[in-house]
Design a protein around this nucleic acid. Structure first.
Lengths: 234, 234
DNA sequence: CGAGAGGTTGAACTCATGTTCAATATTGAA
DNA sequence: TTCAATATTGAACATGAGTTCAACCTCTCG
């Protein structure tokens, strides 16, 4: 349709349009729920053309993965030292939001590219934690890799669970939910949220940074799991 | 087969076995990926019998939701003040692990029951934060609801993303991943992970928090999103 | 023992989805 | 203009999944 007006005989434009449409669909509905027919309809082409250009749904997804990955890694290269607040708006409100949601869907879908995204994210975080970023300095843990992974996981979670947050807080949209959570998250990132702990000789843990790599001591209660339990506790 | 040996003509036992099998399958593969035929095969019955007992796949899922929800809420009622470490093992290593994974799958799947789970979780957390729990005391935020929600989200995330963590850290299983993350998470819960921040007069304005709701202090950039951006930063 | 009721099965039906394929349209080149 | 290559379509095919249904089995009750 609209492509025919501009495209020559060879129409890479159409393939790109299909790919971009697929990214949007994947980001909105997830991978398994998105159908080739749905993508084709959204791009105003026939289902066969989608397969013709990309070979299969799996290869189309691979193409989308590559494009999103490159776009996301380029974005930050273009804005190398932008303050976090601006990058936040850029990623949550601009056209990048689709790519971010695609990224999040990849995070939950068992796929090699999703893992690649995550590993890259952890590696970047590890460097940032070590060197600081934009004037921020971070706590240094013994097991730096685990620390980076933990922070990566925590940083992703508000967007992963944003639909649940939206309902729980009554917020309107993604930006609203994040804005509502932001002060709490920032406070937590600055000071934690545990102010005092029970006296326990039997479970006394090396309080500071007990995360010795591999050879870590039993370390007492599992921090994460314990919090989960407290939640289920009444 | 095995049921025929014990079950009378009326076999509520079979229906329960189908439901329990379905819970296991749902927890392992997710809802959309789990098939009625797969459940039937795992339970050694015919697909038609599954529908006969529950009416449809959706109703079967509703029955599973109810059962998991009741089981999880009962567990904590039975162990009211058990130390977090014991509850952790109970939920991650015992037979409850299946229910926990079912709960996590519900968290990511857009469904009413999943939201019910989450809302209940937030409510319980809010009470715990206010009153303390097992000797722990927690920071009190102005927006307590948002604080509870934030902590709920953060507490769930390590298990949600555990497959990614497993690959990133090279751990063997869920317990291994959590054990490796635990010291970092605990340290973060105690002290946060930001040690110093840049001096910024220009960004001290509410511009950072768009849609700033109620009286929550601007508190600078969005904690979550900013961290996400830092991650994409190189 | 006979009948009825419910449990259980296996095949079949319906629908959605990924994919294939022959046919047609379009375009740049000879 | 003619040709070859590519883009594009629409229908058809194959598969898998949820569901239906008639028949069979197994038990309880009269």
């Amino acid at each position: 349709m609209s492509s025919t007006s501009r495209a020559p005989h060879t129409a890479p434009e159409t393939a790109e349009r299909i790919r971009d449409t697929a990214i949007t669909e994947f980001a909105a509905r997830g991978f398994s729920s998105t159908t080739v027919r749905g993508i084709a309809a959204a791009a105003s082409v026939s289902p066969g053309l989608v397969i013709h250009h990309f070979g299969s749904k799996a290869k189309l997804r691979a193409a989308c993965d590559d494009h999103v990955f490159e776009t996301l890694t380029d974005i930050k290269r273009e804005n190398p030292q932008a303050p976090p607040s601006l990058l936040a708006e850029l990623l949550t409100e601009g056209p990048m939001r689709t790519y971010v949601e695609y990224f999040l869907k990849s995070m939950l879908d068992p796929s090699g590219q999703g893992q690649r995204f995550f590993d890259h994210y952890v590696a970047v975080l590890e460097q940032i934690i070590g060197e600081g970023f934009a004037g921020y300095a971070f706590r240094q843990a013994e097991d730096r890799r685990a620390q980076s992974t933990a922070i990566a996981v925590l940083a992703l979670s508000p967007m992963l669970l944003e639909p649940r947050v939206r309902h729980a807080l009554g917020t309107e949209d993604l930006a609203g939910s994040l804005a509502r959570l932001a002060p709490c998250l920032l406070d937590l990132y600055r000071h934690g949220f545990i102010t005092s702990e029970p006296d326990r000789q039997d479970l006394s843990t090396p309080s500071a940074a007990p995360g010795g790599r591999h050879d870590a001591p039993p370390a007492g209660p599992e921090g994460e799991a314990s919090t989960t339990n407290e939640g289920d506790q009444r």
